[in-house]
Structures are given as structure tokens and as C-alpha cells.
Simulated scan of single mutants.
Amino acid sequence: MRAVAKQRMTSLAGVIATAAALQDVSAFAHSASSGWTYPPACCHGDPMTGECSSIPGTTVTPTPDGYVIILRPGDHRRVTHQDRYFVPYDSVIPSGDDNFHICLHPTEEHENCFFAPAETM
């Protein structure tokens, strides 16, 4: 009887692990404070540890070839020193709200995804 109970517990643990692995991929992303969800390919965390965040519009400067973004500590939760990013216009993703957003991954020196409000694109 003990062997049967142990086998059922092992099977139940396997079912739980499988269900967790098959959860919606959005579980690996997180939402902007305005409510829209960053694409899973851009965001590898949750609202507290995720690398995607809105940024002040004053940090973004359009140039003829793309956006220059200069972030300082306080502009994005992962930024610990001033960083400069360049994002060509053909790499910009439309924002789900009227704000600029950036995803920094795998470190703060690397821009993974950049979102701009539709009216600025």
C-alpha cells in the first residue's frame, strides 16, 4: 500500500511540474504600470525584477537615423550609472500607451527592446 501511495505522490508531483511548465508564456513577462504586457521576448522578469520599464520622455532624443536614449540612475530601476543607447527607427516597437519604455537585458548596458508612442514614430 505504501508503494502505491508513494507512486501516486510522485505522479502528482510530475503533473504539477508539467502544468507549471505549460503555463501561458506571459507568465515569463510582466506588464507596464499602465496595464499592457511587454512581449515575452523583451521581458524576462516580473514587475519587481523585470528589465522592462517606462522611461521619462526627456531621456529620449530623435535623430535622423533613430533615437538616442540617455538614462541615469532613477530613470529605470536597473540603471546604476549613466548609459547611452541608440535605437534605429526600424527597431522601434509601438508602445502600448503614450510613454517610452525600454527593456535592458542581459545587463543595463544592453538595450533589448525599445517602445515609443505611436505618434512619435
Rank of each mutant, 00 (worst) to 15 (best):
D90W: 01
G14A: 10
L22K: 14
T18A: 13
T10L: 13
L71Y: 03
F28Q: 15
Q7N: 10
G35H: 06
S53A: 13
R78A: 03
V68K: 08
P94N: 05
R2I: 11
T80E: 10
R8P: 02
V87C: 11
A118C: 01
C42D: 11
P47W: 09
D65C: 07
P64C: 03
A27R: 12
D97E: 09
C43G: 09
D24Q: 13
S91W: 05
H76Y: 03
D75W: 01
P88V: 01
A116E: 00
G14V: 07
F115N: 06
F86V: 12
S33L: 12
M121R: 04
H105C: 05
F28P: 04
V92C: 06
G74P: 03
L12V: 09
H105N: 09
A5R: 15
H81N: 02
R72Q: 13
D98Y: 00
A5V: 14
Y38W: 14
H110T: 08
V60L: 00
A17Y: 01
H110R: 03
G50N: 08
C113K: 08
L12N: 11
G66A: 05
E109N: 04
V4P: 02
P94S: 03
V79F: 00
C103G: 13
P64N: 10
P62H: 02
T59Q: 06
N99Y: 12
I16C: 05
R2P: 01
Q23T: 10
E119H: 02
K6T: 09
V25A: 14
L104G: 03
A3F: 11
F115W: 09
P106W: 04
G66L: 05
R8Y: 10
V60Y: 00
P40L: 13
